[in-house]
Design a protein around this nucleic acid. Structure first.
Length: 462
RNA sequence: GGUGCGGUAGCCAAGUGGUAAGGCCGAGCUCUGCAAAAGCUCUAUUCGGCGGUUCGAUUCCGCCCCGCACCUCCA
């Protein structure tokens, strides 16, 4: 059964398959800007893309998928951060790249095969801009910036239907307003966008030479240049969050197709935003979570991963602390369930198809909630068989690591002492004393779980 | 104003022209000094509202109401 996935360009379900003769599936996923910790909204997209990657590996074989995800390590935000902190840009972006990697690892996201950086591909970007200049798709403004001439590309707006949109009156005035004035004055048309940004004092040392003078690449050109270098002129699948649909991906198409003279990507996929408490995350609403903050609340990264996968990727998902609790319980059920499966003997005739409906749901437009539903349905009906390998294959595809022991938590000595006291009281059948100590532990946010021959301490979850 | 996506049980969330998956919570039971864990069982005569098409609509069509997002920083 082939993988079918919604294509944002044609707005239809299309089969995923490698177009080129070598049979390698070329997958480009827009990565983060490394200037701060990514929030869980960012991670919804990366976790969804991780499931795509795993599904592709399953379908075509791990060696037949090439996954590229970029790091934007030079732009207004990264430069501002470095300037504010008085540190070199490379140092700041390294710090946040490392953090991003650590978070991705915790969430059990597979590393892409190539993770190119914008600063590592200045020449490739300059080369592309050069071609666009020569072909008449770009022009140099008086200040040395280079802009893409949107009117030179007939296909512009096909992805985002930008021509069908009408600019809101406020948006029109904003274009001639203060924040846009610097660029807008230099541009021939308000819709043109920067390929190369002439050096400004605020950029500091972050400047590279180019045929058009010192400066730095615009944001959009990096993905065009890096996907071309690592995947070739035409790729099989390009993904990102919905907000990238316009202008980022629209602009990528314009640059790449004008430069290369051929289709840029066969397939486009955009995952919807994560909402927190019903609203888009934003600093002003104070509803922006990072992985660390959720872990500090006592949840594991696996729980966060599960919660991020509870909704259909193309629908907005409302994230709440309550949904995290639901995820935690569901994951726990899965964890217990796993213990009931057995490692099959090689010769045993086992049913490897038991979980096929789960995989089928994933292959049907990445319907993760349906896949999860199907998984539990199979289990509840006792149709799961006993094959651990079949079960694990499904868990692997979803990226759930059930066998991993949870991180060791430090238990303070005084808590340990209280627990010992209670255990002794219990052994002495001093129920009143034991209950009082249990309550005391609870007040200090620890829970004691009794077993036949011992006990376990866990911090109280909030 | 334009564009797009939604409104399904207390919460989250699939789905289909033929009578509602699943998860969480909750309840009951088993087990158990208590608690927890674990296991079992139960939990929408109903799918935003009003019309229409149809033998039959939550599913198709029309209108209306409500929510969210996007409209050149943004996963």
């Amino acid at each position: 059964m082939p993988i079918r996935l919604h294509d944002s360009l044609t707005r239809s379900l299309k089969e995923l398959k490698p177009a080129q003769a070598d049979g390698v599936f070329r997958f480009y996923n827009c990565g983060p800007t490394v200037y701060a910790p990514a929030h869980i909204g960012n991670f919804r997209t990366f976790v969804v893309n991780d499931v795509i990657r795993r599904l592709l590996d399953l379908e075509f074989g791990p060696g037949k998928v090439k996954h590229v995800r970029n790091l934007t390590d030079v732009d207004d935000k990264t430069i501002k951060r470095a300037r504010d902190e008085g540190r070199p840009l490379a140092e700041v972006t390294k710090q946040w790249t490392d953090k991003f990697h650590a978070d991705c690892d915790a969430l059990n996201c597979l590393r892409p095969h190539v993770e190119p950086t914008a600063t590592g591909h200045i020449r490739e970007q300059v080369d592309m801009i050069d071609v666009l200049m020569k072909k008449g798709n770009a022009y140099r403004a008086a200040d040395g910036s280079v802009y893409f001439k949107v009117s030179s590309f007939d296909g512009y707006g096909r992805l985002s239907r930008v021509k069908e949109r009408e600019l809101r009156p406020e948006a029109v005035s904003a274009l001639s307003g203060k924040s846009q004035a610097v660029d807008a004055d230099e541009k021939e048309d308000a819709t043109d966008f920067a390929l190369w940004k002439a050096h400004k004092p605020d950029d500091g040392a972050n400047s590279w030479d180019s045929p058009w003078g010192a400066g730095r690449p615009g944001w959009h050109i990096e993905c065009s240049a890096m996907s071309k270098k690592h995947l070739g002129e035409t790729i099989d699948l390009h993904t990102g969050g919905v907000d990238l649909l316009f202008p980022h991906h629209e602009n990528e198409i314009a640059q790449s197709e004008c430069c290369n003279g051929r289709e840029f990507s066969h397939h486009w996929y955009h995952s919807e935003h994560l909402l927190v408490d019903g609203k888009k995350m934003s600093k002003s609403l104070g509803n922006l979570y990072t992985l660390d903050e959720l872990i500090a609340k006592g949840f594991t990264a696996q729980t966060v991963r599960y919660a991020l996968l509870m909704g259909h990727p193309r629908k907005q998902l409302n994230f709440t602390l309550e949904s995290l609790h639901a995820a935690e319980s569901a994951l726990n059920t899965l964890r217990n369930l796993r213990k009931s499966f057995k490692t099959p003997t090689p010769a045993a005739s086992i049913d490897r198809t038991a979980f096929d409906p789960v995989l089928a749901a994933l292959k049907d437009d990445l319907n993760i909630p349906a896949a999860l539903g199907s998984l539990f349905t199979i289990v509840n009906r006792n149709d799961a068989g006993t094959d651990l390998a079949a079960f694990d294959r499904v868990m692997d595809t979803l990226g759930f690591k059930l066998e991993l022991p949870e991180a060791k938590i430090e238990i303070p000595q005084d808590i340990k002492d209280l627990a010992e006291k209670r255990w002794a009281a219990k052994q002495a059948k001093d129920w009143t004393g034991a209950d009082a100590l249990r309550k005391e532990l609870h007040d200090r946010r620890w829970v004691m779980f009794d077993a036949k021959d011992g006990y376990k301490l866990e911090p109280l979850k909030r």
